[in-house]
């Protein structure tokens, strides 16, 4: 595979991998590092990409394996650096139909949701980020994580239940 072909893969699947990286790490630096590492490893193993198959799931598998091997480092960074990065707190005022106060509320809700997702056990968090963030199908997630489809569905269900409890708990406080 030539460099320009690989670059087109970055353009095509970059967002989905980046969302996984951002969802699974706690700082922007770690997310960016994981994202770059994923594509650099994929580039080293690009002969496997030539064989066809599901490129998105293959890239996600690399990202997931890298995350597993570095997750203790990411957790340590979370302890010494603030979890909420400034770019997460930015308020997008580009939408004219919404006033600033509404936008702030939305961003606040999003931040609350992110914090709740971070509180989920890794197994559940991974499935949520892959399904909603990277937009992987149940089948693709089961391939990436080497678990049955039923397990993916039950993890998603459990994750949503726990998120509801966490969010309702936060709002009531």
């Amino acid at each position: 595979m030539e460099i320009h072909e690989f670059s087109s893969l970055i353009d095509e699947y970059g967002n989905c991998i980046y969302r996984f990286c951002k969802g699974m790490t706690y700082t922007t630096e770690d997310a960016e590092d994981l994202y770059q590492q994923t594509f650099l490893v994929a580039f080293e193993k690009r002969h496997k990409l030539d064989r066809g198959g599901n490129v998105k799931a293959y890239l996600m598998q690399i990202a997931s394996n890298l995350w597993k091997s570095h997750k203790t480092t990411y957790a340590r960074h979370e302890r010494i650096a603030p979890t909420v990065s400034f770019d997460n707190m930015e308020v997008d005022i580009a939408d004219d139909n919404m006033d600033i106060s509404e936008n702030v509320v939305n961003e606040d809700e999003k931040q609350m949701l992110r914090t709740s997702i971070d509180k989920l056990p890794d197994k559940l968090k991974q499935v949520v980020v892959m399904f909603y963030g990277s937009e992987l199908s149940i089948e693709e997630i089961s391939k990436v994580l080497h678990i049955p489809k039923g397990t993916v569905k039950s993890r998603l269900h459990n994750a949503k239940e726990q998120l509801k409890d966490l969010l309702e708990g936060e709002v009531s406080i």
């Binding site: 970059g14 967002n15 980046y18 969302r19 951002k22 969802g23 994202y35 997008d92 999003k110 949701l113 992110r114 949520v128 980020v129 909603y132 963030g133 998120l163």
Partner: peptide, 10 residues
Amino acid sequence: LQELYASDNV
């Protein structure tokens, strides 16, 4: 959840 990740672009 979909809205949460929709704006996270590289």
